[in-house]
Amino acid sequence: MSHTPPSGKQKERRLSQVKPLPYLLIAPAMALFTLFTFYPFIKAIVLSFALTDKAGNFTQWVGFDNWIRVLTKSSFWDVVVITLKMAAINLVFTFCIAMVFALLATKKVRFSKFYQTMYALPMAIASSPAAAIFLFIYRQKNGLLNNLLGTNIAWTNESPQALWSVCAMTIWMHIGVSFIFLLVGFRNVSEDLLESAFLDGAGPLRRIKDIILPLASPQIFFVLFLNIGSSFKSFAQIRLLTQGGPANSTKNLIYYIYENAITNGRFETACVQALVLFGLIFLITRIQFAMEKKVVHYQ
C-alpha cells in the first residue's frame, strides 16, 4: 500500500493540536536539570582542558596536558582500583542481603509489617548520624564490635579492616531501598504458580531459581542499576570514618575529586577525574543494558 504524505493543511492542523501545557509543566524540572546537571557537566568538560584558579575559574587553555598528567600517575590508577573494588563489594553484598530479606518477607504473616519496616529503616537515616553509630561500633576501646569479638582492632585505622568497615556502612545504608523494590517484585509472583510448582515437587530453592527470580527480573534489573551508581559514589562514610586512610586504602574517586577540588584547589584535576568516573559508570551501565534483553523477562 502506498503512503500519501500529509498535506500542508494536515501539518498545520497537527501543529495547532500541540498544547503548551505539558511543556510548561516540565519546564521547572528541565530548568533544574540544566542548572544542576547539564551546565556543571559541560563546564567540567571545558575545565578539564584548562587551568583554573583556587576558586575554580578559568585562567588559560592547556589542551590535553591535564589529562596526560592525571592518567600517567600511578596513584590515580591505585584510586581507580580501590574504587572498583569498593563498588564491587557494595554492589554484591547489598543486592544479596536485600534479596535474602525480601525472600524472607515475601509471604505476609502476622507482624510482617514490623520486620519489613526494620529491614527498610536504614534508608531513613542520614549519613552523619549513621557514621556516628558506626564509629561507636568500630571504636578500638570499648567499641561494640571489639567487645563482641574479644579483639582490640582499630577498625577504621588499619588496613584492610578500614575498607571493609566503610563498605559495611555503605551496604547497611543501601539495603533498605533495594529491599523495598525486590519485595514488590517477589510479591507480584503469582501464588497459584508457586503452589503448582510445589505440588509438582519443586523445592524452595528450585522455586526461587526457576520462578521467583525470572518473574521478578525487571525489579532485579532496576535494583542493580540503582546500586551501580550508589556503589561508585560513596563519599560521606569515607569522609566521616576514615578520611581516605589508612595510607589511602579507602580513598575512592569521589573522595579524590573532593580532595583535589576543595582541599587542594585543583579544580581542573578534579574535572578530569570526575569525567573518568562518569566514563566508568557509563560503561558499566551500558554493559548492563546490553544484557537486559537476555536476562530480563517482562510480562
Score class of each variant (00 low, 15 high):
Q288G: 12
W67E: 06
K233Y: 14
I284P: 00
L280G: 00
Q273F: 10
T156P: 01
N66D: 07
M1C: 10
K43D: 09
M118E: 00
L226P: 01
L199Q: 04
S7F: 06
G176D: 06
Q60K: 15
F76R: 05
K19Q: 13
I208Q: 03
N57I: 07
V189S: 08
K233I: 11
V109E: 05
M30P: 01
L213I: 15
L226I: 10
L32N: 01
L84W: 09
L240C: 06
C96Y: 07
V70W: 04
Y119S: 02
W155T: 01
P129V: 09
S190I: 12
W77T: 05
A87F: 10
A197V: 10
L280C: 12
F267C: 08
T72L: 10
D65I: 06
D192A: 15
S7L: 10
K9D: 09
L193T: 10
V295W: 15
L21E: 05
V81Y: 13
N252F: 14
S112V: 04
F289R: 09
V80P: 03
T72K: 13
I153Q: 03
F38N: 00
I42E: 02
L226H: 13
F101E: 05
T151Y: 11
M173D: 02
I171A: 03
I220N: 00
F114M: 11
R69T: 07
E191P: 08
N157A: 09
R139W: 07
F282P: 02
Q219R: 14
I212R: 15
P122A: 11
V18D: 04
D210A: 13
L51P: 03
L35H: 06
M30A: 14
N146P: 00
S75F: 04
G203D: 14
F33Q: 03
P160L: 09
I97R: 11
